[in-house]
């Protein structure tokens, strides 16, 4: 019974007006959750966690750097799942959501690269290191940009979305290979990889801000995704009846 109603509800999300309302309702809650988690996370990050004995206060950069990096990768997985659903079942709302993941994922990749570079300056003594993780993040950024560019290049948005979905899946196969190859390459070129910060050696007192910020960033991804998808849907359906009804009805909201 419950399962059935969930299933029906899920199917209804394929209908543009329902999806539109769903985004409208859910997105403020996600933004609110993001705000709360960020405030808690920042409080921990700045007032509770002591400075690291080696990295001193620069360790606080990692509380946004690491969640951003995780989200940049998790965002790609979300996008790939949506793209798969879009290609197999041809659901238009999923196509739109998959495409709207790309700019947000690119934004997180950018945060990750920028903060990583800022962290690297005092710690490694250089803004840019051809380190495996940095390089594969840079390549990931280009993949995101390629997907956005491909989608934007089509006159017919639906066609663009489907073609770009294929690229998303191709990228999904390639990203692990790229990551592996880049790791291989850095170990070939330079034996030393400075790793002051390793997951295993992390002290438990550093966990709370990391966890809160990670949740915050995930909620933000969802909120921004819903906002963007709603706009894109409206823009694509501007000549359709339900949009006109919405506009004529209870005013423009």
């Amino acid at each position: 019974m419950i399962w059935k109603s969930i299933k029906v509800g899920f199917h209804r999300l394929g209908s543009p007006p329902t999806f539109y309302r769903f985004c409208l309702l859910l997105s403020p809650w996600l933004w609110a959750g993001f705000a709360i988690c960020t405030i808690i996370g920042l409080y921990y990050a700045f007032y509770v966690v002591p400075p690291d004995y080696q990295q001193s206060d620069t360790v606080r950069i990692l509380y946004i750097h690491v969640p951003a990096a995780w989200q940049a990768m998790a965002g790609y997985v979300v996008m790939a799942i949506l793209a798969m659903i879009a290609l197999v079942w041809r659901i238009r709302t999923t196509e739109i959501m998959a495409m709207m993941c790309a700019p947000i994922g690119a934004a997180f990749t950018l945060i990750c690269l920028a903060t990583g570079s800022i962290w690297g300056r005092p710690m490694w003594g250089t803004w840019w290191e051809w380190d495996a993780r940095l390089t594969s993040m840079l390549v990931l950024l280009f993949i995101y940009l390629g997907i956005m560019g491909l989608y934007a290049a089509f006159e017919d948005r639906r066609k663009g979305a489907r073609v770009a979905c294929i690229l998303v899946l191709v990228g999904l196969v390639n990203i692990p290979i790229i990551h592996f190859s880049v790791e291989w390459w850095t170990t070939l070129h330079q034996g030393k990889t400075i790793r002051i910060f390793g997951e295993s050696s992390m002290h438990y007192s550093m966990m709370p801000p990391l966890i809160w910020m990670t949740i915050a960033v995930k909620l933000m991804f969802g909120a921004a995704l819903l906002d963007r998808s709603r706009n894109e849907l409206l823009s694509q359906d501007r000549r359709k009846g339900w949009v006109a009804k919405k506009l004529l009805g209870k005013g423009v909201k």
Binding site: S56, T58, I111, T115, P122, D227
Partner: peptide
Amino acid sequence: PELEYASFVWSSYGIFAVVVAWQILQP
């Protein structure tokens, strides 16, 4: 809070804030 390497830490959080603000404002 008084931090060592304060400019690095704050500019990182500044970038984060700008990108988040853009994600809210753009839509």
